[in-house]
Protein backbone atom coordinates (compact mmCIF):
# COMPACT_ATOMS: atom_id res chain seq x y z
CA UNK A 1 0.00 0.00 0.00
CA UNK A 2 0.99 3.62 -0.06
CA UNK A 3 1.26 6.43 2.41
CA UNK A 4 0.05 9.83 1.37
CA UNK A 5 1.76 12.68 3.15
CA UNK A 6 0.56 16.25 3.26
CA UNK A 7 2.90 16.93 0.35
CA UNK A 8 -0.12 16.68 -1.96
CA UNK A 9 -0.82 20.25 -0.86
CA UNK A 10 2.14 21.37 -2.98
CA UNK A 11 0.28 20.20 -6.07
CA UNK A 12 -2.84 21.97 -4.86
CA UNK A 13 -0.82 25.17 -4.44
CA UNK A 14 0.68 24.79 -7.89
CA UNK A 15 -2.77 24.46 -9.47
CA UNK A 16 -4.09 27.33 -7.41
CA UNK A 17 -1.21 29.52 -8.59
CA UNK A 18 -2.16 28.73 -12.19
CA UNK A 19 -5.84 29.32 -11.41
CA UNK A 20 -5.08 32.76 -9.98
CA UNK A 21 -3.34 33.61 -13.25
CA UNK A 22 -6.36 32.67 -15.30
CA UNK A 23 -9.18 33.28 -12.83
CA UNK A 24 -10.85 35.97 -14.90
CA UNK A 25 -11.47 33.40 -17.59
CA UNK A 26 -12.06 30.41 -15.30
CA UNK A 27 -14.51 32.43 -13.23
CA UNK A 28 -16.99 32.99 -16.01
CA UNK A 29 -18.29 29.53 -17.02
CA UNK A 30 -19.39 28.39 -13.54
CA UNK A 31 -21.00 31.77 -13.08
CA UNK A 32 -22.76 32.15 -16.40
CA UNK A 33 -23.63 28.64 -17.52
CA UNK A 34 -25.92 27.72 -14.61
CA UNK A 35 -27.50 31.14 -14.81
CA UNK A 36 -28.32 30.52 -18.44
CA UNK A 37 -29.87 27.17 -17.55
CA UNK A 38 -31.76 28.73 -14.71
CA UNK A 39 -33.08 31.46 -16.97
CA UNK A 40 -34.05 29.06 -19.76
CA UNK A 41 -35.68 26.38 -17.63
CA UNK A 42 -36.76 28.50 -14.69
CA UNK A 43 -38.30 31.32 -16.66
CA UNK A 44 -39.12 29.62 -19.94
CA UNK A 45 -40.25 26.22 -18.69
CA UNK A 46 -41.87 27.41 -15.48
CA UNK A 47 -44.81 28.74 -17.42
CA UNK A 48 -45.39 25.27 -18.94
CA UNK A 49 -44.69 23.23 -15.83
CA UNK A 50 -46.03 25.33 -13.01
CA UNK A 51 -45.66 23.60 -9.66
CA UNK A 52 -43.70 20.41 -9.12
CA UNK A 53 -44.35 17.99 -6.30
CA UNK A 54 -41.31 16.65 -4.47
CA UNK A 55 -41.49 14.54 -1.33
CA UNK A 56 -45.16 15.36 -0.86
CA UNK A 57 -44.60 19.07 -1.06
CA UNK A 58 -45.20 21.45 -3.85
CA UNK A 59 -42.48 23.76 -5.16
CA UNK A 60 -42.25 26.14 -8.08
CA UNK A 61 -40.26 24.70 -10.98
CA UNK A 62 -37.37 27.13 -10.54
CA UNK A 63 -37.07 26.28 -6.83
CA UNK A 64 -37.11 22.62 -7.85
CA UNK A 65 -34.31 22.79 -10.41
CA UNK A 66 -32.01 25.37 -8.76
CA UNK A 67 -30.49 22.80 -6.31
CA UNK A 68 -30.15 20.29 -9.16
CA UNK A 69 -28.24 22.78 -11.30
CA UNK A 70 -26.01 23.45 -8.31
CA UNK A 71 -25.29 19.72 -8.08
CA UNK A 72 -24.56 19.51 -11.80
CA UNK A 73 -22.17 22.41 -11.35
CA UNK A 74 -20.30 20.49 -8.62
CA UNK A 75 -20.11 17.43 -10.84
CA UNK A 76 -18.96 19.26 -13.95
CA UNK A 77 -16.28 21.35 -12.29
CA UNK A 78 -14.61 18.49 -10.48
CA UNK A 79 -15.03 15.91 -13.23
CA UNK A 80 -13.76 18.16 -16.02
CA UNK A 81 -10.81 19.33 -13.93
CA UNK A 82 -9.46 15.82 -13.41
CA UNK A 83 -10.27 14.68 -16.94
CA UNK A 84 -9.35 17.40 -19.43
CA UNK A 85 -7.34 19.50 -16.98
CA UNK A 86 -5.28 16.67 -15.52
CA UNK A 87 -4.89 14.95 -18.88
CA UNK A 88 -3.37 18.09 -20.40
CA UNK A 89 -0.96 18.39 -17.49
CA UNK A 90 -0.08 14.71 -17.59
CA UNK A 91 0.10 14.07 -21.32
CA UNK A 92 0.81 17.32 -23.13
CA UNK A 93 2.64 19.43 -20.57
CA UNK A 94 4.45 16.50 -18.89
CA UNK A 95 3.93 18.30 -15.60
CA UNK A 96 3.68 15.03 -13.67
CA UNK A 97 7.01 13.86 -15.09
CA UNK A 98 8.68 17.01 -13.83
CA UNK A 99 7.06 16.60 -10.41
CA UNK A 100 8.18 12.98 -10.21
CA UNK A 101 11.79 14.16 -10.38
CA UNK A 102 11.27 16.04 -7.10
CA UNK A 103 10.64 14.61 -3.62
CA UNK A 104 7.01 14.04 -4.63
CA UNK A 105 5.67 10.57 -5.30
CA UNK A 106 2.92 9.75 -7.76
CA UNK A 107 0.27 9.14 -5.08
CA UNK A 108 0.83 12.65 -3.74
CA UNK A 109 0.55 14.16 -7.19
CA UNK A 110 -2.70 12.36 -8.00
CA UNK A 111 -4.16 13.11 -4.57
CA UNK A 112 -3.28 16.77 -5.05
CA UNK A 113 -5.02 16.76 -8.42
CA UNK A 114 -8.18 15.16 -7.00
CA UNK A 115 -8.31 17.54 -4.05
CA UNK A 116 -7.81 20.38 -6.50
CA UNK A 117 -10.71 19.05 -8.60
CA UNK A 118 -12.85 19.07 -5.45
CA UNK A 119 -11.70 22.62 -4.81
CA UNK A 120 -12.87 23.64 -8.26
CA UNK A 121 -16.27 22.25 -7.31
CA UNK A 122 -16.26 24.37 -4.14
CA UNK A 123 -15.24 27.52 -6.01
CA UNK A 124 -17.80 27.07 -8.78
CA UNK A 125 -20.70 26.13 -6.52
CA UNK A 126 -19.92 28.93 -4.08
CA UNK A 127 -20.09 31.44 -6.90
CA UNK A 128 -23.35 30.00 -8.13
CA UNK A 129 -24.75 29.62 -4.63
CA UNK A 130 -24.27 33.28 -3.84
CA UNK A 131 -26.00 34.28 -7.08
CA UNK A 132 -29.06 32.06 -6.72
CA UNK A 133 -29.33 32.92 -3.05
CA UNK A 134 -29.99 36.50 -4.14
CA UNK A 135 -33.16 35.21 -5.80
CA UNK A 136 -34.24 33.52 -2.54
CA UNK A 137 -33.92 30.01 -4.01
CA UNK A 138 -31.97 28.58 -1.07
CA UNK A 139 -33.06 28.49 2.54
CA UNK A 140 -30.61 29.49 5.27
CA UNK A 141 -28.83 28.63 7.51
CA UNK A 142 -29.13 25.06 6.07
CA UNK A 143 -27.86 26.39 2.75
CA UNK A 144 -24.38 26.83 4.23
CA UNK A 145 -24.05 23.04 4.31
CA UNK A 146 -23.86 23.16 0.53
CA UNK A 147 -20.28 24.42 0.73
CA UNK A 148 -18.79 21.37 2.53
CA UNK A 149 -21.11 19.18 0.45
CA UNK A 150 -19.62 20.57 -2.75
CA UNK A 151 -16.20 19.48 -1.51
CA UNK A 152 -17.29 15.91 -0.70
CA UNK A 153 -19.17 15.60 -3.98
CA UNK A 154 -16.13 17.08 -5.71
CA UNK A 155 -13.90 14.33 -4.35
CA UNK A 156 -16.27 11.66 -5.67
CA UNK A 157 -16.53 13.08 -9.18
CA UNK A 158 -12.88 14.13 -9.32
CA UNK A 159 -11.86 10.58 -8.41
CA UNK A 160 -14.08 9.16 -11.14
CA UNK A 161 -12.60 11.66 -13.59
CA UNK A 162 -9.05 10.79 -12.57
CA UNK A 163 -9.80 7.14 -13.13
CA UNK A 164 -10.81 7.87 -16.72
CA UNK A 165 -7.70 10.03 -17.19
CA UNK A 166 -5.61 7.05 -16.16
CA UNK A 167 -7.23 4.71 -18.67
CA UNK A 168 -8.11 6.70 -21.82
CA UNK A 169 -5.57 6.49 -24.60
CA UNK A 170 -6.15 10.00 -25.93
CA UNK A 171 -8.06 13.09 -24.97
CA UNK A 172 -10.86 12.58 -27.52
CA UNK A 173 -11.91 9.40 -25.75
CA UNK A 174 -13.29 11.44 -22.85
CA UNK A 175 -16.35 11.79 -25.06
CA UNK A 176 -17.20 8.23 -24.10
CA UNK A 177 -17.61 8.64 -20.32
CA UNK A 178 -19.24 12.00 -20.94
CA UNK A 179 -21.76 10.55 -23.37
CA UNK A 180 -22.40 7.35 -21.43
CA UNK A 181 -22.11 8.56 -17.86
CA UNK A 182 -22.14 12.32 -17.35
CA UNK A 183 -24.87 13.33 -19.80
CA UNK A 184 -27.34 10.61 -18.72
CA UNK A 185 -26.83 11.76 -15.14
CA UNK A 186 -27.38 15.37 -16.15
CA UNK A 187 -30.67 14.40 -17.79
CA UNK A 188 -32.01 11.57 -15.64
CA UNK A 189 -30.50 12.17 -12.20
CA UNK A 190 -33.68 13.70 -10.86
CA UNK A 191 -32.51 17.04 -12.16
CA UNK A 192 -35.21 18.43 -14.43
CA UNK A 193 -38.15 16.28 -13.35
CA UNK A 194 -39.00 14.26 -10.23
CA UNK A 195 -37.80 10.65 -10.46
CA UNK A 196 -41.27 9.24 -9.71
CA UNK A 197 -42.48 10.40 -13.11
CA UNK A 198 -40.18 7.76 -14.65
CA UNK A 199 -41.22 4.12 -15.07
CA UNK A 200 -40.13 1.85 -12.22
CA UNK A 201 -37.16 0.26 -13.96
CA UNK A 202 -35.81 3.66 -14.99
CA UNK A 203 -36.13 4.90 -11.43
CA UNK A 204 -34.17 1.89 -10.20
CA UNK A 205 -31.44 2.65 -12.73
CA UNK A 206 -31.36 6.30 -11.76
CA UNK A 207 -30.70 5.40 -8.14
CA UNK A 208 -27.40 3.86 -9.20
CA UNK A 209 -26.16 7.21 -10.49
CA UNK A 210 -24.13 9.24 -8.00
CA UNK A 211 -25.61 12.51 -9.26
CA UNK A 212 -29.11 11.36 -8.30
CA UNK A 213 -28.00 11.12 -4.69
CA UNK A 214 -26.18 14.42 -4.81
CA UNK A 215 -29.29 16.13 -6.18
CA UNK A 216 -31.34 14.55 -3.38
CA UNK A 217 -29.08 15.96 -0.67
CA UNK A 218 -28.78 19.36 -2.31
CA UNK A 219 -32.56 19.60 -2.60
CA UNK A 220 -33.05 18.42 0.97
CA UNK A 221 -30.72 21.18 2.12
CA UNK A 222 -32.11 23.89 -0.12
CA UNK A 223 -35.83 23.12 0.19
CA UNK A 224 -36.13 20.63 3.04
CA UNK A 225 -36.84 18.45 4.80
CA UNK A 226 -33.29 17.53 5.74
CA UNK A 227 -33.64 14.08 7.26
CA UNK A 228 -31.86 10.74 7.60
CA UNK A 229 -32.22 10.02 3.87
CA UNK A 230 -29.58 12.64 3.18
CA UNK A 231 -27.16 10.60 5.24
CA UNK A 232 -27.72 7.55 3.04
CA UNK A 233 -27.25 9.68 -0.06
CA UNK A 234 -24.04 11.00 1.38
CA UNK A 235 -22.84 7.48 2.13
CA UNK A 236 -23.54 6.48 -1.45
CA UNK A 237 -21.37 9.36 -2.70
CA UNK A 238 -18.67 8.42 -0.20
CA UNK A 239 -18.78 4.89 -1.59
CA UNK A 240 -17.89 6.24 -5.03
CA UNK A 241 -14.93 8.11 -3.54
CA UNK A 242 -13.87 5.03 -1.62
CA UNK A 243 -13.87 2.95 -4.80
CA UNK A 244 -12.58 5.37 -7.39
CA UNK A 245 -9.94 7.21 -5.37
CA UNK A 246 -7.74 4.12 -4.80
CA UNK A 247 -8.63 2.81 -8.25
CA UNK A 248 -7.47 6.07 -9.85
CA UNK A 249 -4.18 5.86 -7.92
CA UNK A 250 -3.68 2.28 -8.98
CA UNK A 251 -4.44 2.88 -12.65
CA UNK A 252 -2.27 6.00 -12.70
CA UNK A 253 0.62 3.99 -11.36
CA UNK A 254 0.13 1.46 -14.13
CA UNK A 255 0.05 4.25 -16.68
CA UNK A 256 2.93 6.43 -15.53
CA UNK A 257 5.41 4.30 -13.62
CA UNK A 258 7.46 2.51 -16.23
Amino acid sequence: MFVISSRFLRIWHRNFAVYRKTWKVSFMPPLLEPLLYLAAFGLGMSALVGEVSWRNQSASYIVFIAPALLSVNMMYNSFFETTYGSFVRMYYQKTFDAMLATPLFLEEIITGEIIWGATKSVIASSIMLSIISLFGLIRYPEGLLLVPLSFLAGIAFASIGMYFTAVVRNIDLFNLPIFLFITPMFLFGGTFFPLDTLPGWAQALAWFLPLTHLVEITRAIAIGPLDVFALWNLLYLALFSAIFFPLALKKMRVRLIK
Binding site: R10, R14, A17, V18, Q93, T95, D97, A98, P103, L104
Partner: peptide
Protein backbone atom coordinates in the same frame (compact mmCIF):
# COMPACT_ATOMS: atom_id res chain seq x y z
CA UNK B 1 14.55 15.79 -18.33
CA UNK B 2 14.45 15.64 -22.10
CA UNK B 3 11.18 17.56 -22.38
CA UNK B 4 10.90 21.25 -21.66
CA UNK B 5 8.12 20.48 -19.20
CA UNK B 6 7.79 23.92 -17.67
CA UNK B 7 4.42 25.21 -16.46
CA UNK B 8 3.29 27.22 -19.49
CA UNK B 9 0.77 29.34 -17.60
CA UNK B 10 3.36 30.60 -15.13
CA UNK B 11 6.16 33.11 -15.59
CA UNK B 12 9.82 32.08 -15.45
CA UNK B 13 10.16 33.24 -11.87
CA UNK B 14 6.96 31.50 -10.77
CA UNK B 15 8.09 28.29 -12.42
CA UNK B 16 11.19 28.30 -10.25
CA UNK B 17 9.29 29.29 -7.11
CA UNK B 18 6.65 26.60 -7.54
CA UNK B 19 9.32 24.00 -8.15
CA UNK B 20 11.17 25.11 -5.02
CA UNK B 21 8.02 24.43 -3.01
CA UNK B 22 8.15 20.77 -4.04
CA UNK B 23 11.47 20.64 -2.18
CA UNK B 24 9.99 22.37 0.88
Amino acid sequence: QQDNNLDPELSILQNLEVFASYFD
